[in-house]
Simulated scan of single mutants.
Amino acid sequence: MNEPEEHDFPAAADYLSLLYGKKPVRETVRRLRDEKTRLRKAKDIMRASGVDLLPADNLHVRKNIEKVMRGKKLSPVLLVRRPEGLIIADGYHRVCAAYHLTEDLTVPCRLA
């Protein structure tokens, strides 16, 4: 999909609120809403974020793989660039699913 689903933004805010205060989270989510969707390779998102790849049989990863195999589009991933590295604010399971399909798969994302 080119546009994130509306529920992705509160999900990103919930995750980011574990790391940052209310004001920085609110500003970051506003910026994510305003950004244009761009494409990045799954392998690059995984490397830059430093997160572990979930297995393909993880319930949420598997569901996303199945959606793609049925021709459905997934919501863009919401990413936050920080000095300490890239944060996947929302869409971790979607990035893992894309990587399992092919690590060179381009993933729609918003980057703030």
Rank of each mutant, 00 (worst) to 15 (best):
M1F: 06
N2P: 09
N2I: 12
E3W: 12
E3Q: 15
P4I: 01
P4V: 03
E5F: 11
E6M: 09
D8I: 04
D8T: 04
A11D: 04
A11M: 03
A11V: 03
A11S: 04
A11T: 03
A13G: 06
A13N: 03
D14G: 04
Y15K: 04
Y15L: 05
Y15A: 05
L16Y: 06
S17N: 15
L19D: 01
L19W: 06
L19Q: 07
Y20E: 11
Y20D: 06
G21S: 13
K22L: 05
K23S: 12
V25Q: 01
V25Y: 00
V25L: 06
R26S: 02
R26L: 02
E27I: 07
V29Q: 01
V29H: 01
V29W: 00
V29S: 00
R30N: 10
R30Y: 07
R31G: 05
R31S: 12
R31A: 12
L32W: 00
L32H: 02
L32N: 01
L32M: 05
L32Q: 03
D34C: 10
E35Q: 07
E35M: 09
K36R: 15
K36M: 11
L39E: 15
K41M: 14
K43L: 10
I45Q: 10
I45L: 14
M46A: 15
M46G: 11
R47S: 13
R47Y: 04
A48H: 08
A48K: 09
S49M: 03
S49D: 01
V51P: 09
V51L: 13
V51R: 10
V51M: 14
D52P: 02
D52I: 06
L53H: 02
D57I: 08
D57Y: 03
N58I: 14
N58K: 05
N58Y: 10
L59N: 11
H60L: 12
H60T: 11
K63G: 12
K63P: 06
N64E: 07
N64L: 11
N64K: 12
N64Y: 10
I65W: 04
E66Q: 05
E66W: 05
V68L: 11
R70G: 14
G71S: 04
K72E: 14
S75Y: 04
S75C: 08
P76G: 02
P76Q: 00
V77Q: 05
V77P: 15
L79W: 07
V80G: 02
R81L: 03
P83K: 14
P83N: 11
G85H: 03
L86F: 08
L86T: 06
L86G: 05
I87W: 02
I88Y: 00
I88R: 00
D90Q: 12
G91S: 15
G91K: 15
G91A: 14
G91D: 04
Y92K: 15
R94M: 01
R94F: 00
R94E: 00
V95G: 09
A98I: 05
Y99K: 02
Y99E: 02
Y99V: 04
H100S: 04
L101S: 03
D104S: 14
V107A: 00
P108C: 09
P108G: 06
R110G: 01
L111D: 00
